[in-house]
Nucleic acid binder design. Structure first.
Lengths: 133, 133
DNA sequence: CTATTTGCAAACGCTTTGCCTGATT
DNA sequence: AATCAGGCAAAGCGTTTGCAAATAG
């Protein structure tokens, strides 16, 4: 099938490093601005191309829950996310995946579930404080 | 705030009826084609405007999980969905919402979860059969 | 060397919006 | 009559892509 030998260009390396070193689930544009500090003449097209390549390689994860634009996660392991309804930021949720839920689907429906994506919504700690005023 | 008195135009009524009478979670374009059979000169802009209005009214639900375009659900009650990885169709999953999951987040993290959206992925019954070949 | 990747800019595709006319209450 | 909604077409906007030049292996 795909015999392409993935080259580790400095652009690709930088994008991956930036993504691994943040936990803010940034947008492509945020990554673009950030990488531009190191590689000033990099183009947005390169950011997108590499994000797609890295996702295919299984190095990162694409989150396209309820929003106009995608967010990217440097942690390719499946885990839960939380979106704050007030500030719209996305956080990692550190509770174990509920694998029984897949079993429930497999046992009670005709569908064959390999896994599931879950996003919680509500208020992040910061916005809970702000809402008290 | 919003003092607009929602008028029930024939366009809006038709769109809502079409959506209520399907369980395929269609795209805006699918709805457009469908409604056009009854109101031939309706415009795509009207479809989008009304889908947004109906969603605000709480009459329907917008699904923008992992895809370039949104899908719409005539059932505004929160429920689980299943996306087939092979044919990309979206189905309703008829198992009860796992509300304890929200509790787990509220008890074990600093986040305040009001709810969660979950999409399962795997193979639908049709595609399971096809995959046996 | 040569196939992959980049930068640039134009193209894409879904969705939104402005404007004016038409319909609803 | 007053205001909300529709039709049409253009604009928006995040993302993708074609192409020639650059570069990793």
């Amino acid at each position: 099938m795909n015999k392409s030998k993935t080259r580790m260009t400095k652009q690709r390396k930088t994008i991956l490093r930036v993504l691994r070193n943040t936990d803010t689930h940034p947008t492509a544009d945020w990554i673009y601005e950030r990488v531009k500090k190191e590689i000033p003449n990099i183009s947005l097209g390169t950011i997108y191309r590499n994000l797609n390549v890295l996702a295919e390689m299984g190095e990162i994860m694409v989150l396209d829950f309820g929003s106009t634009y995608s967010r990217f996660d440097g942690n390719p392991e499946n885990h839960y996310h939380f979106r704050c309804e007030r500030c719209d930021r996305v956080f990692d949720i550190d509770i174990p995946l509920n694998r029984e839920l897949n079993m429930k689907v497999n046992e009670n429906t005709p569908f064959m579930a390999f896994g599931h994506r879950t996003e919680f919504y509500g208020l992040c700690p910061d916005c809970q404080k702000k809402n008290q005023t």
